[in-house]
């Protein structure tokens, strides 16, 4: 009798969520097994990588991160175009960092304008990410939802405090929501229930479990994502059967280790490669934990991760 690999018996599946418009549709989710356990089930839709674009010229970015975009950082639309044309971005994630009341505090009108410009410049689905301030995100993302009706943007972060206002806007103007909770499986589930109660259809929900970068709490996030997938796939937890989005680039690149120059930290290796490897390694681990959409920054890191996805998918 030959050896047989023991297999996990799954009883759930991740929902398939269509992103973007008819013309640029990308669907994520659909897994019937743990990440890349292709010997146990199916992963019909490989994970997707969205490239970051900022609504204002980034400050305090390390040279390594800035270099590929140096010619476009002042113009979000051009930046987005470059990501698609030169680096083959499958999606764009517009980070509305400048709307933060503690930063430039740009207005909702400016954010709408930036979003419209980026949306018009690209032919891939667009993620629009607020600054994380509850009041400001409510105002800004609501306006964007209204002004960009029909674009099927992925709007985030939608938290418990903002879920009513942004959920309602997503229903009315037909966008998708990134339901964001602070690294807690029960809170994630609860927010999904609340969004359902509000009337947000399931095919408009993506889960953002909140992530940290390598060396900065990644393990905790990894465990939560892992449990999220266990609950969804083996424990019939219907309200957790949603694709997972990991907004990881800004977490990776803000840490000290990614920013230190060769002179400042000679022991940490080549600073041009260091951040790239930190980002790629973080992304790779979140793929193994169950990420469906990764928001990433550096083209080289993305190349590495794409290669990894291809290898694991056997394609």
């Amino acid at each position: 009798m030959g050896f047989e690999i023991p297999k996990i018996s799954y009883n759930g599946a991740i929902k398939e969520i269509p992103l973007g418009k008819e013309s640029n549709r990308i669907t994520v989710g659909g897994e019937t097994c743990y990440p890349f356990h292709l010997f146990e089930g199916n992963m019909p839709l490989p994970p997707k990588i969205a490239m970051e674009v900022y609504d204002a010229t980034p400050e305090e970015w390390p040279q390594a991160a800035l270099a590929p975009f140096a010619d476009v950082v002042h113009d979000p639309a051009a930046w987005a175009q470059k990501c698609v044309a030169s680096y083959g971005a499958e999606m764009i994630a517009l980070q509305l960092a400048s709307t933060d009341p503690n930063a430039q505090n740009t207005t909702a009108e400016q954010a709408v304008e930036a979003t419209k410009k980026v949306a018009a410049a690209i032919e891939v689905p667009l993620i629009v990410w607020g600054c994380g301030n509850v009041e400001k995100d409510t105002e800004v993302l609501k306006r964007i939802a209204e002004e960009c009706a029909g674009e099927n943007l992925i709007l985030g972060p939608v938290e418990e405090d903002t879920h009513k206002a942004l959920g309602a806007a997503a229903i009315a103007y037909q966008h998708t929501i990134a339901a964001s909770t602070p690294i807690d499986i029960n809170l994630a589930k609860q927010l999904n229930i609340l969004l359902g109660n509000l009337g947000v259809p399931d095919e408009r929900i993506i889960v953002d479990p909140t992530v940290g970068g390598l060396g900065y709490g990644l393990e905790y996030c990894y465990s939560v994502m892992e449990r999220d997938r266990m609950a969804a796939l083996t424990q019939e937890d219907e309200r957790l059967q949603f694709p997972i989005l990991c907004n990881l680039a800004k977490e990776v690149w803000k840490v000290k280790e990614a920013k230190l120059s060769d002179e400042e930290a000679p022991l940490l290796g080549d600073s041009t490669k260091r951040g790239v490897l930190l980002e790629a390694m973080t992304a790779l681990l979140f793929l193994l934990a169950g990420g469906d959409i990764l928001i990433m920054r550096h083209p080289d890191a993305i190349q590495l991760v794409k290669g990894f996805i291809n290898d694991l998918m056997g394609s």
Binding site: E146, A149, K164, A172, L198, G199
Partner: peptide
């Protein structure tokens, strides 16, 4: 309807 209906959904 959309503009005002949103307020009915989000409770404002």
């Amino acid at each position: 309807l959309r503009k005002r209906g949103v307020e009915f959904v989000d409770g404002t």
